[in-house]
Design a protein around this nucleic acid. Sequence first.
DNA 1: AACTACCTCAACCGCTTATAG
DNA 2: TCTATAAGCGGTTGAGGTAGT
Length: 397
Amino acid sequence: MGRSPCCDKVGLKKGPWTPEEDQKLLAYIEEHGHGSWRALPSKAGLQRCGKSCRLRWTNYLRPDIKRGKFSLQEEQTIIQLHALLGNRWSAIATHLPKRTDNEIKNYWNTHLKKRLAKMGIDPVTHKPKNDALLSTADGQSKDAANLSHMAQWESARLEAEARLVRQSKLRSNNNTSSFQNTLQEFSNSPSSPLSKSPVVVPPRCLDILKAWNGVWTNPNESSTASAVAAVSVAGGLVGDVESPTSTLSSNGIGDHNSTAFFEFVGNNSSGSNCEGGGGIMKEEGEEDWKGFENSNHLGENSITFTTSSEIHDLTVPMDHVGDNVIAGSTFVERFTDLLLSTSGDRSFSEGCGESDNGGVTAGSGGDSTSEYLEDNKNYWNSILNLVNSSPSDSAMF
DNA sequence: AACTACCTCAACCGCTTATAG
DNA sequence: TCTATAAGCGGTTGAGGTAGT
């Protein structure tokens, strides 16, 4: 019954791989494919366990791996997807072609997480670290709103994760990179709620995101209440969709992330300093970081935060437009822009100007309604683009 | 030059999920 | 349907490199 043991670990080598071992593994896989990882080491003449061989191949030897410095676009993608997915490195990796989850994880832990920390942002929650200090005394109502908000966002987040998983699996099965194919297969599935529909229907997670987008971008086009209702409907649909990763939501990370976008509001006077006023940050530039911090500390005419309770309700943010309040969703976009806006040896063209994920919130202000709306639209466009983007050339699948 | 502290990242560990029998 | 195992995944470690004193 079942399979035989993977390997007894007696006599197997551990630690760094030698070039000879790499060569053996490469040669074997190129000729035979990896097949069963368990059987591979003996066939390839390696004193390693299959697991070690698999890791060496997937994280280092595989020919379609891109190594070296992360581009600005990659960094921004990581930050934004981390805000959405938490420490789901494999899911994030599907949107970073030719990067491994291990590499992304390392890069986050050694670079990006520190940058956020220096900015006063909790890298786990993507919220300001002193958010607690800014909370109001209205604890109960705030908590209730929090729960509601978290539930909605958790649903959306989980569905996005689920779709990533589905895409990944489909891609591994039929080697297709087409998002449309993914949708079609999903819709054709007997168990799929979309199976009866003859047309390709976007996944529900996008419904939710778009509904949210509508809430934030079109307050005057329809009533806020209807927008909220749209979100509720979309959110309700989420529960109908199979989400194979739902059980993973208990890790707690995503729970925080779920509320991060909307609890964080700011009045950004710095914007995205692509040129001229830029230079606020360098890849390893401590001084530049200090400069940023000095100009962006809370209450120092830059980023400010309202209490969480003020924006928990979906109807509230619109009321705050005139109060120089910018929805928290914008913040992720802005701080990634700020984070990436300058770099000694990098081209600004990647992270500034008209980015491919909805543009950059540049310049000063953040106190106008139009900019606020545009910022939110841009932010959601970026998320939608990320979620929708097909990692067709991803090495992972 | 020697020592120390810090940083990076490949690799391992252990848990979870998927799957063969 | 159940059990055992493979595969996948995220957290952590530690060796090697680099910067600072």
